[in-house]
Structure formats: C-alpha cells, structure tokens
Design a protein around this nucleic acid. Sequence first.
DNA 1: GAGTAGGGATTGTTGAACAATCCTGCAAGA
DNA 2: TCTTGCAGGATTGTTCAACAATCCCTACTC
Lengths: 258, 258
Amino acid sequence: MSQNFPWWLDVSDDAEMVISQRSDDEGRQAWLRGVAADVARQDRSSSAERAADILRRSITEGALRPGAQLSEVELTEVLDVSRNTLREAFRLLTHEGLLVYKLHRGVFVPELDEQDVVDLYRLRRVLEVDVVRELADRPTELPEERLEPLEADVELAEAAALDGRWAAVGTANMRFHRHLIGLADSHRLDEITGRLLAELRLLFHVIATPQELHEPYIARNRGILELLRERKYEQAADDLQVYLLDSEQGLLKAFEAR
Amino acid sequence: MSQNFPWWLDVSDDAEMVISQRSDDEGRQAWLRGVAADVARQDRSSSAERAADILRRSITEGALRPGAQLSEVELTEVLDVSRNTLREAFRLLTHEGLLVYKLHRGVFVPELDEQDVVDLYRLRRVLEVDVVRELADRPTELPEERLEPLEADVELAEAAALDGRWAAVGTANMRFHRHLIGLADSHRLDEITGRLLAELRLLFHVIATPQELHEPYIARNRGILELLRERKYEQAADDLQVYLLDSEQGLLKAFEAR
DNA sequence: GAGTAGGGATTGTTGAACAATCCTGCAAGA
DNA sequence: TCTTGCAGGATTGTTCAACAATCCCTACTC
C-alpha cells in the first residue's frame, strides 16, 4: 500500500472513539459484537467500497473542494486500486450526490448554488416534518431508548461548541437529523436523507462563518428532542418546520454575502 | 453484435410509437427535435448507460422476474459489452433499486414484500400530496400547458383500457404520477420518484390480476387532473391522499391472495 | 482578433488473467 | 438416515495493459 498520502486524505475517524469508551461488562459484550460486525463488514466490503469510504470522507470533511476534479491516474496511485475499481468507487459516490460525471471529462466535486439550497430544503422539510408528525400515529408508542442516539448527538454538539470546533458541531447536527429520520424505520427514507445531508454538507464548505451557521441550532435540536420526550409530536413538527425555514434562510444569506 | 437475443430481451418500445404517431406540421417539428435530442443523448451516453437502458426495460416490463439472477458472461455476449462495462451498468441499476448485489454471488432482480409496499407508499403519499398542496403557493400561477402531459397520460390509459391492455394502463398511470411530481420543478424529487415508481413496478409483476389493480385509478387520475385544472389544489391533495391509501390497500390485498 | 488544425492529456472500453468465494456432489463417519 | 468435510467446477472480484474516443490547449493562419 502506498504510504505517501496527500494531506487531504489524512483524516481521523471520530465515530469509533465514542464506541470504545464503554467499558462495563454488558457494554463490552455489545462492543465486541460491534467490532466483529465492523470487521465482518470490512471483509465483506469490496475494494471499491473501501476506496469510496476514503474519498467520501475527504469530500464531506472539505478536503476536496467543490469544483475540484478527481484525476483517475493520480487516485489510482494514492488509493492503490486499479482504474476499474476506482471508477466503481466513483459510481458509488456519484449516486450519493458527492460526485458528478462529465462524459469524457472526468468526475468533479459538484458545485451547488442557491437553487439547490431551495430544492434540498424543500425535501428536508417535507420528509423530516412528516416523520415527526407520524410518530403520533404509531401503533405502539415510541420506546424511550429510541431517543438515546438523538441525546448523544445533542451532547456531542454542545461539547464541541464549548471548544469552538464548529465543523464538529455541524457534523453532530447532521447526525441528529439523520437519527431523527431513523425513527421512521424506513430503509428508503434513510437512504434519501443520507444523500440529502451529504449534499448539504457540500454547501457548507462555501460558507465562511460556520459558527453562526451551526451554533443557533444546537439549542433548537435540544428543544425538539425534549418535545419528543414529552410526546408533543405536533408541536415538535411545527417547531421543526420553522427551524428548517430559518436554516434555509441562513444558508441563502450566507450565499449572498459570499 | 450478437443476434440470438434471449426471449426476454425482445421488448418493444411503446414510448416512441406514441410519439411517432403525431403527424401534423408543428408536431413533426417537435418530433424531429425530440429525435435529435434522443440521438444526441444516445451519442453522449456511455456504453454502460446504453446497456443499463436495455436491462432496465427488461426488468420494468417484467421480462426479468424478481429473484432472477443475471449472469455476467451470458449478458456480456448478449449485450456485446465487456464484463467491466456490464458491471458498471449493474451498478447504475443497483442505485435505482432495480438490481441488488450479493457479494460473490452476483446480481439479482430484487424480490419485494409487503413491508416494501408500506415503505414505498408512505414515501409516495408524503411527496405527491405535498407537491399538489404546494401548487397553491406558487409565486406565479401554474400555466395551463403544464397539465398537458397529464392529460395525454390519462387519455393513453383510457385508450389502453378499452383494448384491455392492462400493462399499458399501468405504464400510463405511472407516467401520470411522474408528470404530477414534475410540476414541482425539483430535480431531486424527479429522481427519487423515478426510483420509487420503478420499484413499484417490480411489485406489480407478482400480481396475477392487473386489471383490478389499475382500472379503478384511470377515472381517479382524471378526477385529480380536473381538480388541478380548476385550481382546487387542496381538494386535489386530499383526494390524492385517499387515492394512494386505497392503492396501497389494493396491493397489499393482492399480496395476501397470492 | 477570430477561427481552425494539430497534439498531448484524459477518459472510455476492451480482453485476458488470476485470486477469492460460492455452490454442488460425493464420500466418510456417527 | 443424517450430518460433516472435502474436492473441484463455476462464478464473481480485481487487476493490468492496451487501444479508441474525446476534450482541451496551443500555435498557426488569415
């Protein structure tokens, strides 16, 4: 394996850190199972998927800027895979909206504009608000522990905000919304949301001031979480609707000021 | 090019037939432009995409049944492309939900079940109903001609019903919903819908009686179209909501009786 | 300065080769 | 009879090298 990674591939994985902190007996069992599943998934994933993982992180963490072209030969050497495998990885990321193909020209990190903001937020509003609203109609009441991932995300965002790590705040906020959608137990909804949020993340990279973009929503996320705890789903849905409209306006304003 | 196509690749294209029936002067102009665009698009698409087109039709028209495995060597000969290109076509269709990969086992036409019906219809309801409801809030009123494709779809379904061509009725109904979503002018919404309807089509193939599955909705499609014409968007949205719930129930019942 | 012809770089596609994995059938043992 | 283990044959996963097609840039012509 090639060792001279370019600077933008040198990314650290924070997700596993969180898991490994659990150390009680029952926790260790769960942790071992998790690792086993992780390793199994690693083994069961193809080279293309592993390459895609690396590229995905490089893009979502902002190392590869919108508009940048990804050269096949260069990445072939860096990632140590063949061109065919690399192109399969490209296809995977294309499907997620993180890359775009231009025939005979290559793959590029897409450059999104105001219209994309409007488009993305329209979908977010419809889907997320509906998920929350539907929680009231569940045949069985939502178990308390289903909200734990949301709690963890909010806490992570709060902690990151104290240290001024605004990119991490943005990540945690994203994860909050992903977990929120997850409450619907819809495989397709999860997939669609994953793509929407990935594209949204591309938009964040054109913004100069991540603090004012992310900070206000930490408290609002907690507010929605509390409403969910109290099973006030209608109010949570209404709040979320306004929340997302505000967030859209904030992004659009940042675009204008750019 | 190999000439001994297996039976299931021998599919006719009904879409172009319909277009070519137009023969008035203005129509011919439009038709020529359409063909030119088609050819240009054809030339601008890669071999993988062309191969994917053929496979997509074979699947959506039911020639390739759910559960069927697609052999690489066989399709390599039939489609006259290399294995690498074919695999790229597989990836494309996998992303549309029309194929599933099983590592080291190959690609298969997915077999959907009742849970998928519920999942798909949940998304359809949220998205379609919202599109209709939003039409009331458009800054500029929806131009009359935007409804023409919907009118054409309904007429096509009515004509096909008279001849008892229920598969064609199903196709026309599908296209109606796709055009309905198209009124939102959202690129992402179009894409998501395209995938949802393709998967839905997969489900239709396990149904024994297509008539009672499609026939009731011809009139209801026309009903919704008329409401859109009269700009009664709220009522259209409400009707559509009930419509989709009924449709879901019909599919679930057909599943049970299978 | 505008248009155009080349040439170098990049992508699109192919075919062959080998490795890894899965499936099938058979035989040995309980 | 049923299970277990083991070939080996078939299929998929991955790589490589080569060539074709296309694009982009530059230099040239007028």
